[in-house]
Amino acid sequence: MKKITFPISEEQLMDLKAGDRVLASGYLYTARDAAHKRMYELLQKGEPLPVDISGQTIYYVGAAPAKPGCAVGPCGPTSSYRMDKYAPSLLDLGLKVMIGKGMRSDEVINSIIKNKAVYLIAIGGAAALIAKSIKKSELICYEDLGTEAIYRYEVEDMPLIVGIDSIGGNVYVR
């Protein structure tokens, strides 16, 4: 089991191979369909993003509401392919890590290789378990989107698997 820290260092990132199991700590941003659409539209208009994603991690998730006393509600990954249209633009801006579940398009895989990034997967449906590794959640922007707003999570030993590594190794291709 490899330990990694977000934002990830180049050394840690290049060491990750498809199928590796990792425990991740540090900070990441959440964003799913609606937030990606907004960010993509900003980029198309040549406007800056609400967060500087260079070197950062985006987790494709829309958490359930937190019960009183909990940092977050259950928060497993959502299907990544719905972000495929938007991901290459973000990778070109320096996004280093995407976390989700399921397959990615060839365009995204090529962009991962080109930009030396990595795609990690979380276990779909293990939302109550994953929530145990989220220590803090802070709203960053797009509050009107509800569960689809962008949050910053502080995570500790979040269990993940390397889906697509920086040279294109793919855990789903067998």
Partner: peptide, 16 residues
């Protein structure tokens, strides 16, 4: 394990 946590804490097993 996930399903046990959900049942014990009365939280959804999946965020969706």
């Amino acid at each position: 394990d996930n399903n046990s946590i959900a049942a014990n804490e009365r939280i959804p097993m999946c965020q969706d």
